[in-house]
């Protein structure tokens, strides 16, 4: 076969009939293959022709090659478009079939809640301070204005190793240590950590628990600032519709002292079963730091004042995630831990 036009016609017909990439590939090799393709052979024979024919045939052969290449490209595009158009049928799989289980470990819900609390308070400029869990009597009680024989000691029944050494009953000793170390206010710190009280385990309390306490020492701090800080924290954690109430109470280390409550998230404060018809959920204690406590921390109460608060991380987690038994946090039951 030596007629370029004829070859072109033949090739275009073959291309038109090709149904797959492989068939097209075969046509391409047959006509354009480097050594044995019809068009290539035509071109390789040109050298032996007289010059006059050479030019004409050369042009015709190159035209044929370009036409075949163009047709191949067009047909390929057509076939690809058709293949893509049919994907919905040709490659369909059962999308309802589940994937293999992911062996993802879970971060403890108390870690998660503590992290949220820390993040919120760090955004207000508070810094995390830590301290020892086995504390001296002085840091745990005396420095916090709770001398031996003080009736309020009843509330902090503690585990002792010796008359001088005990498991801290709250994380407040960290505040004294921080004041002593930092010396010069402003001081804005939070102290998360474990604490211990001699209460038998039950659904609402354990002899071991975790707290986050906060302390601000600065110039001219007010009860309003304390309320605002708590409100900012609670709204950041639970949503902006929550309200905070401070109720007078008594702690030896603050004056005035308060309990602080959060409006019930279920009834919005109207009173329901979940809040025992009070409309409020008790969260923690707070107050303006007692001048003697500042003095014990080495801070001059005539120049500086402060506020402090504390609450249980477990309590916050229970409120946030509707957990009704505090013991679940410490039982390491994966069926519980994997819910968070």
């Amino acid at each position: 076969m030596s007629d370029p036009l004829g070859l072109t016609t033949q090739a275009l017909a073959a291309i038109g009939q090709a149904r797959t990439d492989e068939e097209l590939e075969k046509v391409e090799v047959e006509y354009l293959g480097r050594k044995s393709g019809h068009v290539s052979r035509l071109l390789s024979n040109i050298g032996s022709l007289p010059p006059a024919e050479k030019a004409a045939l050369g042009k015709a052969a190159n035209d044929a090659k370009r036409a075949i290449e163009a047709a191949l490209a067009a047909r390929r595009a057509e076939l690809e478009a058709a293949r893509l158009a049919d994907l919905a049928e040709t490659e369909a799989i059962d999308m309802t079939f589940p994937g293999p289980p992911l062996k993802r470990g879970h971060i403890h819900v108390l870690t998660q809640v503590r992290r949220e609390i820390e993040t919120v308070l760090e955004s207000l400029g508070y810094k995390v301070e830590l301290g020892p869990e086995v504390e001296t009597e002085w840091y745990n009680f005396e420095a916090l204005n709770i001398p031996a024989g003080h009736p309020a000691r009843e509330a902090w029944d503690s585990f002792y190793f010796s008359p001088e050494l005990l498991l801290r009953a709250h994380t407040s000793p960290v505040q004294i240590r921080a004041m002593q170390r930092i010396k010069e206010p402003p001081i804005y710190i939070i102290n998360p950590g474990r604490a211990y009280r001699r209460d038998p385990p039950e659904a609402t309390r354990l002899p071991y628990f975790s707290q986050v306490e906060g302390l601000a020492v600065d110039k001219g701090l007010t009860v309003g600032d304390l309320k605002g800080t708590l409100l900012y924290m609670i709204q950041s954690l639970y949503g902006r519709d929550r309200k905070v109430r401070v109720r007078p109470s008594y702690f030896p280390f603050t004056e005035p002292s308060f309990e602080f409550d959060v409006s019930c998230g279920i009834c919005g404060g109207m009173g329901c079963k979940s809040c025992r018809h009070k409309g409020w959920l008790e969260v923690g204690g707070c107050g303006m730091v007692h001048p003697q406590v500042l003095r014990n921390g080495g801070i001059d109460p005539t120049r500086w004042n402060g506020y402090a608060w504390g609450f249980g991380i477990e309590r916050m987690a229970m409120l946030k995630h509707d957990v009704d038994d505090i013991r679940l946090f410490y039982e390491s039951d994966l069926r519980f831990l994997e819910q968070f």
């Binding site: 470990g105 879970h106 403890h108 870690t111």
Partner: peptide
């Protein structure tokens, strides 16, 4: 790696 965090009593 599939490890779940636990909080266990120190006592």
């Amino acid at each position: 790696e599939g490890f779940t965090e636990t909080w266990n009593p120190a006592l």
